[in-house]
């Protein structure tokens, strides 16, 4: 006869499995699980010997398959928990810094917005991981973590505090303006992309197979290009943009940003090297790149795929703050997590 059992808490995967299998294959009169000094005890009574034997064989077979999976689940869960803790610490630090600088009036409007944007980013990320933890491992997985209540995902920002409606609205306002700014950044990139677009190359010629087409080709091409440039400067109402003007701007911007990127990437690389040294405990990934020494070399080539994490020169607000938070973090595990977030963010932006 199988007795209904109820396993409270997370428990250990193996123990719970063994408990369940044993109960299924044994004749059980009583099955209890006790927690004594934070250790769980699984108590079975009146179990016959053959039941235990079957349970042991099945457990042996299952353990080979389940072992790896269970380890992965636990490992992934722990990783996420650590990420939440690391991000929350960075958030606390940012909130603290922001309050302090506000008090000392040491912040410009832009800097303040940058801080807020960063805090919003951290909040959203924490919420995301908490949600993932809840989904994958249940509510118990977020116990003692700075996760918002299920129904207040965006609302509860500060750990352990219940926000008023006004605070929640303010928080949403920040989220909204942060999102608008991000959209602005995207639009800016789109504008750059558009400006970089070259007029279609007509070198291949446009011929209808007759001499007429060839004769007039050059003239028409000339007209098109001349007007393109013309339109750049003559448009007054302004939609505005025009190919001619845009191109000129891009070329200038491109040159400037390339120089800046090159220069600051070198600095970033040095920082990366330093950080890698400082965080040697974690073994790997303690800097923006696994190999800190390489950062300076490749920092200038931001367009190269795969080197995203090395290019610290063109960090936006969130990336820069994440990098700084990672650099300041003293706990090697949390430092590693913050660098991971930095790399993920950079990859996402790219």
């Amino acid at each position: 006869m199988v007795t209904k059992i109820r396993v409270k808490g997370k428990g250990d995967v193996f123990t719970r499995l063994f408990f369940a299998v044993s109960v299924s294959y044994a004749t059980v009169k009583e099955a209890r699980m006790l927690t004594v000094n934070k250790s769980r005890w699984y108590y079975l009574s009146a179990m016959n010997r053959s039941g235990i034997l079957y349970a042991a064989i099945i457990l042996l077979l299952l353990s080979t398959v389940m072992g790896a999976a269970a380890t992965l689940i636990v490992s992934s869960e722990k990783e996420l928990q650590q990420s939440v803790i690391a991000l929350d610490r960075a958030r606390h630090q940012a909130i603290h810094d922001l309050a302090e600088k506000k008090q000392n009036a040491a912040l410009g409007e832009t800097q303040q917005k940058d801080y807020e944007k960063f805090i919003i980013f951290l909040t959203v990320k924490i919420d995301e991981y908490c949600q993932q933890l809840r989904t994958e491992a249940g509510d118990d997985a977020v116990e003692n973590l700075p996760c918002p209540e299920g129904s207040q995902a965006f609302g509860a920002v500060q750990t352990g505090s219940v926000q008023t409606s006004e605070e929640q609205v303010r928080e949403l306002e920040r989220l909204f303006s942060g999102s608008l700014e991000q959209f602005d950044d995207k639009l800016l990139k789109e504008e750059e992309r558009l400006s970089a677009r070259q007029p279609r190359d007509r070198e291949s010629g446009y011929s209808y197979g007759g001499s007429q087409g060839q004769d007039s080709e050059g003239g028409a091409a000339g007209t098109g290009q001349a007007s393109g440039q013309d339109s750049g400067s003559s448009d007054t109402t302004g939609t505005e943009g025009t190919a001619g003007q845009g191109q000129e701007d891009t070329e200038m911007d491109g040159t400037r940003s390339a120089e800046e990127t090159g220069a600051s990437a070198g600095a970033g690389g040095e920082k990366g090297a330093e950080t890698a040294g400082a965080g040697a405990d974690s073994g790997e990934g303690a800097g923006p790149a696994a190999g800190g020494s390489g950062a300076g070399q490749s920092g200038g080539s931001s367009s190269q795929p795969g080197n995203v994490e090395l290019d610290t020169g063109n960090d936006d607000v969130v990336a820069r703050q994440l990098r700084e938070a990672a650099e300041k973090e003293t706990d090697p595990e949390l430092k590693k997590k913050l660098w991971e977030e930095y790399r993920k963010y950079k990859a996402g932006v790219q």
Binding site: E190, E191, L194, P199, Y206, T223, G228, G241, A243, G246
Partner: peptide
């Protein structure tokens, strides 16, 4: 406006 930028470029490409 960004989309219009593409339309304008398209227009110039198609003109000839």
């Amino acid at each position: 406006d960004t989309i219009n930028g593409y339309y304008e470029a398209y227009y110039l490409d198609l003109w000839e």
